[in-house]
């Protein structure tokens, strides 16, 4: 029995070592090249609307991830001198360095999803799919709401909207 658990422990250690050795995923797991973005600070504390930053949400199929120009609207000057994260972003703004964002909510390549269709025409609330992003404080998405095809289907059936495959898969 002892021996068996020994093997299990060895296996786990080796697996961890293997994972560490071969892991080459980007080390900064969120936000922008090292900057941790907080939805909570922006939306709850400063009361900024979603579409202020996700500018295309009502006009394009993609909501649009903000560019550095969008950030510079507010961050050209220091708002909260104590925030370390803000210092980083101001640096980006002053150098006009492009930001690389990590997208948490993506639809696969073979799915056509239009934000305009859902937000502008369908008049749906962002939170319906994305959950309450205003509570998003840390870099881990603790209330990440997975979006599956079943999620789409349920909603479409509830609202009596077409469920023809070809409307989303092309």
């Amino acid at each position: 029995m002892k021996r068996k658990s020994g093997f299990i422990i060895l296996f786990i250690i080796c697996a961890a070592a293997g994972f560490y050795l071969f892991n080459s995923a980007p080390k900064q797991s969120t936000g922008t090249g090292g900057v941790t973005f907080s939805h909570y600070v922006h939306t709850k504390q400063h009361n900024i609307k979603c579409k202020t930053c996700h500018q295309n949400v009502e006009t394009e199929e993609r909501a649009g991830i903000p560019t550095i120009e969008t950030c510079s609207l507010c961050h050209s000057e220091i708002i909260n001198p104590n925030s370390a994260e803000e210092k980083k972003i101001t640096e980006y703004v002053t150098n006009n360095k492009p930001l690389l964002w990590l997208n948490y909510y993506t639809v696969p390549d073979y799915v056509y999803f239009s934000h305009r269709r859902h937000v502008k025409i369908g008049k749906l609330d962002c939170a319906l799919c994305h959950g309450d992003m205003t509570e998003q404080k840390s870099k881990e998405l603790n209330n990440y709401k997975p979006i599956l095809m079943a999620t789409c289907f349920d909603c479409h059936k509830q609202r009596n909207i077409t469920t023809d495959c070809g409307n989303c898969h092309h």
């Binding site: 093997f7 296996f11 080796c14 697996a15 070592a17 293997g18 050795l21 892991n23 995923a25």
Partner: peptide, 20 residues
């Protein structure tokens, strides 16, 4: 022992490769 170690590294490495 060796077998376990190799399997462990393979599983871990594989997982990392998938997550990459």
């Amino acid at each position: 022992l060796i077998g376990t170690a190799v399997a462990g590294i393979a599983v871990g490495g594989g997982a990392a490769a998938i997550m990459k």
